[in-house]
């Protein structure tokens, strides 16, 4: 695929995202006779950004791992772990009324915990050559089981009581600006952080030697090995990074929501899986993955939007939109070019 093709694809992605969201809104507005402006509001954009953030973070972690040749299918599990760890820490630090400092500490701590767990996971995949798909599924199952278990231990219930959510960062004066004001200058710091992470992830992948090594490790590990770089070390680094990012994603999810939900498929509810689709859709490009995450985030938030403007659609159905969108995206764009050595353990000597 040439550079021009990639550009085209990225452009196409953004276009598709815009068309889908606006199209759905338009259908809804003509169908229910509601003005489009009322449906796509600044608040909607803000909520979509918030919702996209955890997906984007996990997607960036996942794409790094996969670029280097390891399919981390456990993103969903690590997100769950990140969410429960953050909730537990937050409760431990400040009970049911933690401060903002506690929130940040909890996020950092949760990232550290998931990173540590991913070290074990990475060792299973790389050193012990575990089946990447099965082991990744196992992480999900473990998260699905142990997170509500921990919640039940702490709070006697699968879910936590209300804890605290992160405060928006408001820039006095600038926040009064129309539209941009509340999107940029009165925004969750975690959203802003994610924007930075996306940019840095892009630069590291395409402009630094580590990025070259990651790409080579996934495409032709032997070439990297013969160039004198330890393939396994690169893969350890990316897998641990992917776990930490998924954990951060889970923590961010919690910090935005303010309490842990452990019923059903937990509060993560498939977002880790959607993160995988986001980076596939974004063709392994961090910026593309973030754009795709935004699309899914927006779909997720349509539900709220429909309710606020009074459109009578079952929320059960609207909640399914992101999943349906994933199916459509995968069917239309399914044949992404995967790094050629994904899933194969690398052995430098017989």
């Amino acid at each position: 695929m040439s550079v021009a093709d990639r550009r085209l694809r990225l452009g196409g992605l953004v276009a598709v995202a815009a068309v889908v969201v606006i199209g759905l809104g338009a259908v809804a507005s003509t169908q229910f006779d509601i003005a489009l402006e009322r449906l796509i509001t600044v608040g909607f954009v803000n909520r979509s950004l918030e919702m996209a953030t955890p997906i984007a973070l996990a997607a960036i972690g996942g794409l790094y791992a996969e670029k280097s040749g390891v399919f981390n299918i456990g993103l969903e599990g690590f997100m769950i772990v990140g969410a429960i760890a953050a909730a537990g820490l937050l409760y431990g630090l400040g009970g049911t009324s933690p401060t903002q400092a506690h929130v940040w500490l909890a996020i950092a701590g949760s990232m550290a915990i998931t990173a540590c767990l991913t070290v074990a996971f990475a060792a299973l995949l790389i050193r012990y050559k575990a089946d990447q798909i099965v082991a990744g599924l196992a992480v999900w199952f473990i998260g699905l089981g142990f997170a509500p278990f921990v919640a039940a231990m702490i709070w006697d219930s699968r879910s936590s009581p209300g804890l605290a959510s992160v405060d928006d960062v408001a820039v006095p004066g600038l926040r009064e600006l129309p539209v941009v004001g509340s999107i940029v200058f009165d925004q969750s710091p975690l959203v802003l952080l994610t924007v930075v992470v996306v940019a840095v992830a892009w630069v590291v992948l395409y402009r630094t030697r580590y990025g070259y090594w990651i790409q080579a490790a996934g495409e032709n590990p032997e070439a990297l090995d013969t160039a004198g770089i330890d393939v396994d070390r690169v893969r350890y680094a990316t897998v641990i990074f992917s776990g930490a990012m998924a954990g951060l994603g889970g923590a961010v999810l919690l910090a935005h929501a303010g309490n842990f939900v452990g019923t059903g498929d937990t509060m993560t509810d498939g977002r880790g899986w959607i993160a995988i689709v986001a980076y596939l859709f974004g063709n392994y490009n961090p910026v593309g993955a973030a754009a795709a995450a935004l699309l899914f985030g927006a779909l997720d938030m349509l539900n709220v939007q429909f309710q606020t403007v009074g459109i009578e659609v079952s929320s059960r159905l609207v909640n399914l939109l992101p999943y349906v969108a994933v199916l459509v995206v995968l069917s239309a764009w399914g044949k992404t070019r995967m790094p050629s050595s994904v899933g194969e353990p690398y052995e430098s000597e017989d």
């Binding site: 299973l124 012990y128 575990a130 082991a135 196992a138 199952f141 473990i142 142990f146």
Partner: peptide, 13 residues
């Protein structure tokens, strides 16, 4: 459920 997840993890490796 968590124990089941561990079983899967070990079987994978």
């Amino acid at each position: 459920d968590g124990v089941v997840g561990l079983v899967v993890l070990f079987v994978a490796a």
